[in-house]
Design a protein around this nucleic acid. Structure first.
Lengths: 123, 123
DNA sequence: TGACATACTTTGACAGTCGTAGTATATTTA
DNA sequence: TAAATATACTACGACTGTCAAAGTATGTCA
């Protein structure tokens, strides 16, 4: 049985991933989902519905702003809705990063990995 | 504004924390909640309802077993329901630890902390 | 007597994820 | 030319774990 990404942990951090990408430049749904896939080496693929509902939520919260733009001359696909990160979104991203450190730190006190300490044959 | 533990990340890992404690010896609700608090240096306090609903869920899933035991001669408090981890629970715990490594690894590709790499002024 | 710690249960709300399905255009393949 | 595939998104509804609020009950301590 393959170990898979925990959607319970990811929950709430999807926003962070999206903001991480938007920090560099404005982008749109399909492109972002491909970037998440490639950055994670295919280990995580955000679901479409999750992605678009994150957009709605984050726009409502003022972390991102949408705008439409004529697509590239190459004109691949339909019209797109682009999103750009706001100052508030950047702040939120930084907070989530801090929160991550803290949370990770706590969770790891309850995690034991093979070949970590515990040298004296337990069990 | 104090950064706090993300209950979105914790979500699902409450079970793992509980199992981590039960791996050592059987225990009961109140005691477990105090241990979680102390192991995390007070940084995380599991909510009562979260704790007891985790018991119900994990017992249903066969990760833990309950039993009642006469309390210590000191007899502090009411009757208690003790829980012990099962083999299946130990396996589940190990899987969650593996899952954690993987998930952490992926999330951290989207996290930037102050004073981490990024020496060549990007942006 | 009253506060506080211990020990747990019930109920119901909430938020983020996700399966399913549908719409629509453009490009590639048979 | 038809079908498959990639692009780009929306709508709906179910599910799950968390958690606030409130209640029950016992023991300890001032």
């Amino acid at each position: 049985m393959m170990t898979e990404i925990s959607s319970d942990v990811i929950r709430g951090y999807n926003d962070t991933m999206i903001l991480y990408i938007l920090k560099k430049e404005p982008s749109y749904g399909y492109e972002i989902s491909k970037q998440i896939k490639s950055i994670s080496d295919g280990k995580y693929r955000i679901k479409e519905t999750t992605l678009y509902s994150a957009f709605t939520r984050m726009e409502k919260n003022g972390y991102i702003e949408s705008f439409t733009q004529d697509q590239d001359p190459e004109g691949s696909g339909k019209k797109r809705t682009y999103y750009r990160i706001t100052d508030s979104g950047r702040r939120y991203y930084r907070e989530k990063c801090d929160e991550w450190s803290l949370t990770k730190d706590v969770i790891e006190r309850f995690i034991e990995l093979e070949g970590e300490g515990e040298e004296n044959g337990n069990d």
